[in-house]
Write a protein that binds this DNA or RNA. Structure first.
Lengths: 108, 108
DNA sequence: AGGTTACGTACCCGTCAAGGTACATAGAAG
DNA sequence: CTTCTATGTACCTTGACGGGTACGTAACCT
C-alpha cells in the first residue's frame, strides 16, 4: 500500500504504467517515452517492480515489462471508503444542475 | 493529481483522512491519533489542505478539519483505466475457484 | 574471441520531505 | 492586560529521492 502509492506519486512512473495498459513493452521502448536518461528509467522500473505493479520477462537482451494491476485493486478498495462521500456530493451537484437547468448560462 | 497522490503516499496523512471519514475533527484530536509531535501534524494537515483533500473551519482557537473527497474522485477516474484489467484477472480467479470448488481444501 | 546491443548498478550531487525543538499568533478567560 | 489554550511557522538536521555520468553484465553477431 505504502509502496504502491509512493510508486504512483511520480509522473514518470505513471507514464510507464499508462503505456503498459496498451500492452507489454521493452525497457528501451518505455525509456523513449520519458525525458530522462536510461539509468533513471531503470530505477523507476525497479520501484514499480518492487511495488508489484509490473512484471519482467527476458527475451534475448531485452527486458519485457508488463502490467500487474492487482496492487491497484488494493488502492481501489481503500478508495471505496470515500467513494460514497464524493458521489453524495456529485449527486447533490447533479440535482442542483437539474433544478436550475436553463435558468442561467455561463455563470462563471 | 501529483499533489494528491503525494499526499496519499504517507501513512500519517492517510490516518488523518481515515479518521475524517467518521466526521470532522479538531487539529488536536487528529494529532492525538499520530505518534508524532504537534508541529508535524500541522505540516501534514497543510499538505492535505494544499492537495484539496481537507477543509478547515475555525471555532474559537480550534481549527476544525473536514474531508473534501473530490480529489479522490480524480484518482478513482485515473484508476478506471486499469479497473478492467484487474477485474479480468479476478474473474479468471473466480472461474478457477468455481471450477475446482471442493476438489481440494486448504491448499496453502 | 571481440564487438555491439540492451539493460542494470554504483556513485555523486542537489533537492525535498519528515521529524524535532523553539517560538509566534490568536482567541478565551480571568 | 496577563495568562492559558490551541495551533501554526521558523529553523535545523537527517534521510530518501530523482537525475546524471561512468561502469558492469549478459546475450547476440561475426
Amino acid at each position: 500500500m505504502e509502496a504502491v502509492l509512493h510508486a504512483l506519486a511520480d509522473e514518470s512512473r505513471r507514464t510507464v504504467l499508462d503505456a503498459l495498459v496498451a500492452g507489454e513493452a521493452t525497457a528501451g521502448e518505455l525509456a523513449a517515452l520519458l525525458p530522462i536518461a536510461r539509468p533513471g528509467v531503470s530505477r523507476h522500473l525497479r520501484v514499480l517492480r518492487e511495488a508489484g505493479l509490473v512484471e519482467v520477462r527476458q527475451r534475448a537482451q531485452q527486458r519485457i515489462y508488463s502490467l500487474r494491476p492487482q496492487p491497484l485493486a488494493e488502492i481501489d478498495e481503500w478508495l471505496g471508503r470515500y467513494r460514497a462521500l464524493w458521489q453524495q456530493r456529485m449527486d447533490a451537484l447533479h440535482a442542483e444542475v437539474a433544478r436550475g437547468r436553463h435558468e442561467r448560462r455561463s455563470t462563471g
